[in-house]
Amino acid sequence: MLSFIARRLSVAIPTLLILVVLSFVLMYSAPGGPFNSERPLPPQVLANIEAKYGLDQPFWKQIVNYVWSVTTQFDFGPSFQYKDRTVNDVIAQGFPVTLTYGFWSFVVAVVVGVSLGIAAAIKQNSWLDYLAVGISVGAQVLPNFVMAPLLTLGLTLGWFWMTGAALLPGGGWEGGVIVAACAEKDNFCFGLPWGGAWRFDYLIMPVIALSTSYMASIARITRSSMLEVLNTNFIRTAKAKGLPMGRVIRKHALKPTMLPVLSYLGPAFVGMITGSVIIDVFFSTGGIGQFFVNSAFNRDYSVIMGITILVGALTMFFNLVVDILYAWIDPKIRY
């Protein structure tokens, strides 16, 4: 197992280095610097600023410095746009937000998708099956940037036009799921007996928008995988020896069913972390996606690079975890 992990890491780490170097080379080859504006700065001032950010040094020195500080100190350098912040500050501010949305979307997609798929497979050709298949076909054409406006149109604007008050807020960030107390007239907020409250209202639409298409894919994969497993001999044996159906599913069918689902989780994770850019921008959450797009418009290279590398590292870490899980669950894989 350890050698398997080591072998995976020996691919992941060079890949990450390639990503760092690639994005640095791309940035370096950009025409115009971050401080070129319509009203050119006096050359002496420009030289001073470039010296401050280390942009006057030769290419190899810059790249070595950058790679060194990223890999050893996780320091992505100063932001060119926000003069008072470093890229690390930007990430520290935006990342928890994005992570909250991403985490809940992932949970919803996996839990709802897997249950829907299993239910559809067990009750094949029932109305539940047709509903699940219908949802998973329909949701293919509803990527997050389609879901987000439609949900807002229905639950915020439409509700407001009909009743005079929106059911759900159209965006914003209220500091997490656990808050001190519910606001007045706040839907989907539940007081907790030990003080504080669970507040979901501003999370619901982003999470649905982000998770729908992945939920549908997971449901489809689970359904077909489950159907295949239910036709195998060991399930027939389990049924023949008189086990109740629930036990057959839980003890025997579930594990092999999850294998194809597990291998889909890697791409789903990439899709969700990419989709969070749309969610952050559309719902004005203040997550890293919003910083990313702002920086893209303002040519704030260091922030873009920092976020790209961070996402790349996360993706590779997640794929590693999925690979290890897969090897652990599937006895056929020898490592």
Partner: peptide, 19 residues
């Protein structure tokens, strides 16, 4: 494999910004 594990949307946006 290496190319697939790179989050391409982000790299593409980086390219769009630069070029």
């Amino acid at each position: 494999d290496v190319l697939m594990s790179i989050p391409f949307m982000f790299v593409l946006i980086l390219m769009l910004v630069i070029f």
